[in-house]
Design a protein around this nucleic acid. Structure first.
Lengths: 342, 342
DNA sequence: GTGAAAGCGCTAACAC
DNA sequence: GTGTTAGCGCTTTCAC
């Protein structure tokens, strides 16, 4: 059992060469630096024998690179973020990067604390789903030339690299689909957060509704109430007060889950009687009875674009990074829950 | 906009003291080292003004500590692991640790590569759900005195810190519950992996079945087939060949999801007609129609025990860490899918 | 072809 | 009370 930690110095001493030589060989510069084949082989063989692994912390301190990216989301246990995290992890891994996931609970202070922390650790780049109040921190990162890509929502006043989906169009189409299938009284359940993605979903809904001369019925649940039973109470009240609704459109998957729970408990007939539609496709929706129509975000494509963007920022040595904005399209997965009504 | 990176040296120069003084003050040793109040205040004030953050890489190189833990699971996008990850992240965060999540795809080579990589980064500890063939790597970590806690499955031949659930008892009870509710032909769907948790679930099933003089009906789907449609084909065939089954017990949540998909497509009547039971409770099961009986693992408790264990290992300076084994109990969530049949 | 040495930013033993 | 300095393990310039 080899317990002792080996260092490049030990290796040099053992072989009888200098650390420089060892370093060159280990970094694949043997040819370039014209190290003799004999020495090179001897070093490589010895390194393999003792199973030497360079101390990456020292490497990082020296080179200023850590090969670590941060992927900050609201809550890593949310299906949507977890799936995305997985794909990003795989892409990054192939490119030699590790990914640190963290959840900011949509909380500004926690977000800022985490960003500072990782800056101090010298991570190479950030992929962030920002909470609403951290525009100045994001702007600071950009100004410092730290590779950064935003996802899901952005700051309209701030030029940043970003990958988004066309929330407004998607939401408009989804609502239109309900209208086309003869729903006439479509409720919209969303949160109170003031973020671009939620606002766009709301606007998409409103524009389709108004365009069809229907009346909008909107429930905004405060984000803080969603953890507690308060959110469920509000949903129940909304259903109670609007029993003439013939369809309900949920702006996120977790709102839909909460909605289903409330309906199952209080109005089980709604689940089959009302039209149902949700933003974000999750397993549940294709398995449920009825299967639930949803707006599906193209996860693999999103992950790919995020990493493509990030990698190009990582390559770009200039302080003023170029700005790339990507908008991806969603797909409406039409299922039983929105079948035409008569 | 302050773009320049500040170092402790800059601060020292600016204030007109030595780096030692600054370092002491920053590390809260001002009192202990009897630094004058005037100097201390001046330093703290300046540090705040320029928003100085110490370079943690240098700190790590110097102290050998990174305050980073690794949590390695099969697949971070699996509900069960994602939920657990979230709780662990929160506990660790409060204790000043960051958590790196990574997925090993249940692949030995990838596991070993990841472990080596993080060792090189000097992470402080590992929480690992091990793939089957990495016993020697795990043993190496233990011998090197690196804090390590296993979860979900373990190596019977290796003494290690671990947090497990009583899979066999849980599985026996679950099966017994079906038997008690008058199911007489209970199929068991599992994978072919040779890991303690899966074997225990199988044994629990078998013991209850044999004890009741019933006949075991087991489908083992090779892990490699689960990603592809092959897994679904095998499920379909199993259902086809065993249409006299009156209940099906799935050994994991993803097997249950796959089972539900196959049933929905091919034998929709099974979903209500057959008894259903699954290991690992997920949202879906309490929302489905029928709601699905499942064995629920106590996630918060698991996370707590894992971190408790880890923190005590981190404190323990001896090379030979003490070994703690925790076994937690599961809860059978009895729902509609296993209601008594006549 | 190979080596000496500076230095990344920090901590802490030791000196004064 | 405060300063000097070695050194954590590595990369890389420059010298020979």
């Amino acid at each position: 059992m080899k317990n002792k930690k080996h260092s490049i110095k030990d290796i040099a001493a053992q072989i009888g060469v200098s650390v420089t030589t060892v370093s060159f060989v280990l970094n694949g510069k043997a040819e370039e630096k014209k190290i003799s084949k004999a020495v090179t082989d001897k070093i490589l063989k010895y390194v393999k024998k003792i199973n030497y692994k360079p101390n990456q912390i020292a490497q990082s301190l020296r080179t200023g690179k850590t090969k670590i990216l941060v992927f900050m989301v609201e809550d890593i246990s949310n299906h949507f973020f977890a799936k995305l995290a997985r794909i990003i992890e795989d892409i990054a891994y192939k490119k030699g990067y590790r990914v640190l996931f963290c959840s900011n609970d949509n909380d500004d202070d926690k977000s800022i604390e985490l960003i500072d922390l990782f800056k101090g650790r010298g991570v190479d780049g950030f992929i962030i789903i920002p909470s609403s109040g951290i525009q100045s921190k994001i702007s600071e990162l950009i100004n410092e030339g730290i590779p950064l890509v935003l996802f899901d929502r952005f700051f309209p006043d701030l030029e940043s690299c970003q990958v988004m989906v066309d929330n407004k169009v998607a939401s408009n189409n989804a609502t239109q689909h309900l209208i086309d299938n003869n729903f006439k009284n479509i409720g919209f359940v969303t949160t109170d957060v003031n973020q671009t993605q939620m606002l766009d979903r709301l606007r998409g809904y409103e524009s389709a509704i108004l365009n069809a001369n229907l009346e909008p019925k909107i429930l905004q649940i405060p984000l803080t109430d969603l953890q507690s039973d308060n959110g469920k109470k509000q949903l129940k009240m909304f259903f109670d007060n609007n029993n003439q609704l013939d369809a309900i459109y949920f702006a996120t998957n977790y709102l839909a889950i909460n909605g289903l729970i409330v309906m199952k408990e209080n109005f089980p007939e709604y689940i089959t009687d009302k039209g149902l539609l949700a933003f974000d496709d999750i397993d549940l929706f294709s398995l449920y009875s009825p299967t639930i129509t949803s707006v599906s975000q193209p996860l693999p494509q999103i992950a790919e674009k995020l990493m493509e963007n990030m990698l190009s920022l990582l390559k770009d040595n200039s302080k003023r990074k170029s700005i790339t904005k990507v908008v991806l399209h969603t797909e409406l997965k039409i299922r039983e829950s929105s079948e035409r009504r008569h």
